[in-house]
Amino acid sequence: MARMKFLCDADRCIECNACVTACKNEHEVPWGINRRRVVTLNDGKPGERSISMACMHCTDAPCAAVCPVNCFYTTADAIVLHDKDLCIGCGYCFYACPFGAPQYPRVGNFGGRGKMDKCTYCAGGPQADNTAAEYIQYGANRIAEGKLPLCAEMCSTKALLAGDGEIIASIYRERVSKRGYGGGAWGWRTAYREGVQA
């Protein structure tokens, strides 16, 4: 079975935010929920790099480990999903997540942050694939249609790669060997406990 991962090639990412709006478009994500975002390090200085970040679908996911109601589950493709009907909005996954992926519909409303929302790797939720119920809670299920996450598919410079970890790592390695250097894959060591060595 494939082991799905995200890889953002920081040497290609130009902070165009296509991944962000593609996600909004595909899943009709409301204002204030940022399943994916682009962060720029060293802004305005030599060495500036932008990196697109969302849920990395970690190996041994911290969110799942700390969830008090055990609402997370991992698919056969190693995509980390959760069941919003079980989520109590406690915020533990946000404390544990190294990538700030969990999002809550309400920011500071006392006591109720609402059901946690995060990147689904365009794989929907626990309901039947591509039903209205699934769409309302989780958005589209492209994986069930045999497609990959739209953020990566629409990435303007093909910096954001999604797919089987082995394949995207080899694409990245090929690029690195062509250009002669590589900045590495942000988040990989934290998420997958391994780097991409080229």
Partner: peptide, 29 residues
């Protein structure tokens, strides 16, 4: 924490990687 700049007015979103999450998880679990 690895902190950068982001255009949305949400400072917490500007954290790219927050390794303390691991420490917190260890604490919690």
């Amino acid at each position: 924490t690895i902190h950068g700049r982001i255009s949305i007015p949400d400072d917490k979103a500007a954290n790219l990687v927050q390794p303390e999450g691991r420490a917190w998880r260890d604490f919690h679990n």
